Simulated assay, not measured.
Amino acid sequence: MPSYTLRQLEYLLAVAEYGSVTGAAGALHVSQSSLSSGISELERAMDLQLLVRHHAKGVSLTEAGERLLVQARTLIEDAQVLEQVAHDLGSAPVGSISIGIFSVIAPYFVPELIARLATTHPDIDARIEEVGLDELNDGVLSGNYEVGFGYDFGHSSQVTLEHLIAVPAHVVVPANHRLAKAKSISLSQLSGEQLVLLDLPYSRDYFVRALRAAGVEIDVAYRSTSAELVRAMVARGMGVALLNLRPAHTQSLEGKSFAILEISDDIPPARLVALTGNPEKLTRRATAVLETARSVQITGMPKIK
C-alpha cells in the first residue's frame, strides 16, 4: 500500500502553484504547520527532497519534485474521476452538464432533446452552446463539453463518435422552377443553374464534391452560413441549393415557397453524431444525455441502426 496520501499530493500541487507555504496553506484552508508537516512526510515516504526552501523568498521544486508533480496531478485527477463514478453509481444523474452542438443542427435536435431530458432526468441542468464543427471538436477534447452533437466531418481521432441519424442531401428549388414538380432528380439536371451555397466548413466541401462528381459546372451566385437564409434566397428565385436537414414546411420566413427534391445520385448522407472524450470517464449525466439522444428523431430522417 502507498505510504503517502492524496492530501499530501494536494499539498505539493498547491505549493507548486502558489510558490510558498503561506499561499498554499491559505488556498487549502489549512495551517502552515499542517501543510509543512504533510510535505515533510511526503518527502520521507518518497525518500526524496521535493522542495527547496528559500529564506523569505518562498519555495521552489527540485528536479525530482517537478517530475513527481506531473504524476501527482494525474493521480489526483483519476481519484476525482473515481469519486464521481462512485457518486454516480449510487444516485440518479443530477447537476449541470455542458453540451456543445453544431449550430445548423441545433433547431432540429435541441428542442426534443431538452424536452425528453426534462421528463426523464429532471435533475439534469443541460446547458447548450451552439458552435461550429471545429469549435465543437476542440470543446469535447478540452473537456469544455461533456457531450457534443454534430456531423461526422473533420473530427479528431481522439474524439469518440457515435452515429445517431443519417441526414441525406436534397435539392431546394423555387416553387416555380422547371424541376419543382419532380419528386427526384439527378444532380446533372442542375447544369447551368446558379447555386446558393451553404458556406460552412465541411458542409461546403460536401456539397461541392457531390456536384463535381455529377459533372455539374458550379456557378456560385450567393453564399450564406445560414441554412434559413439559403432557403429564403432560393424561394426568391435567386438560385438553387443543396442542403441536408429539411424543415417541416416549404415556405421561407418571408412566406415565399420553395420545393424540396430528392436526389437519385448515390451520395453518402451526412451523419449526425454524438461526440465524447474518454468513454471510460463519462459521468452519469453524460451517459443519461447520450441515452436520451438515441431516442430523438428528426422528421423524415432515418435512424442509424
Rank of each mutant, 00 (worst) to 15 (best):
M1H: 12
Y4R: 12
T5C: 14
Q8N: 09
E10F: 02
L13D: 02
L13Q: 08
L13F: 02
Y18T: 10
G19V: 07
A24P: 05
A24E: 09
A25M: 05
G26T: 04
S31A: 13
G38E: 06
L42M: 08
E43S: 11
R44K: 14
M46I: 02
L48I: 04
L48E: 14
H54T: 12
K57I: 01
G58Q: 07
V59I: 10
T62A: 11
T62C: 10
T62F: 05
E63V: 13
E63L: 15
A64I: 04
L68S: 04
L69A: 03
A72H: 04
E77I: 07
E77Q: 14
D78P: 01
A79W: 08
E83A: 15
V85Q: 15
V85T: 13
G90M: 11
G90A: 13
S98C: 10
I105L: 14
F109A: 07
E112P: 03
A118F: 06
A118I: 06
P122C: 12
I124P: 01
E129P: 04
G132M: 07
G132Y: 03
D134E: 14
E135V: 11
D138I: 08
Y145L: 07
E146S: 14
G154M: 13
G154I: 08
H155V: 13
S157E: 15
S157P: 09
Q158I: 03
V159D: 07
T160R: 14
T160C: 14
H163P: 12
P168G: 11
A169K: 08
A175Q: 03
H177F: 06
R178Y: 08
K183C: 13
S186V: 01
S186D: 12
Q194W: 03
L195D: 02
V196R: 00
L198R: 00
L200K: 00
P201R: 07
S203W: 04
S203H: 09
R204K: 13
R209G: 08
L211N: 04
A213C: 06
E217S: 15
I218C: 10
D219T: 09
V220T: 09
V220P: 01
S226L: 00
V230P: 00
R231E: 00
R231I: 00
M233V: 00
R236S: 15
G239A: 05
L242V: 02
L245I: 09
L245C: 09
R246N: 06
P247N: 03
S252R: 01
E254Y: 10
K256N: 11
F258W: 00
A259R: 09
L261S: 03
S264I: 08
S264H: 03
D265R: 03
P268S: 13
R271M: 15
R271N: 15
L272H: 03
A274K: 01
L275F: 05
L275Y: 02
T276K: 06
N278K: 06
T287C: 14
L290Y: 02
T292Y: 08
A293I: 07
V296H: 04
I298H: 05
K303A: 15
K303F: 09
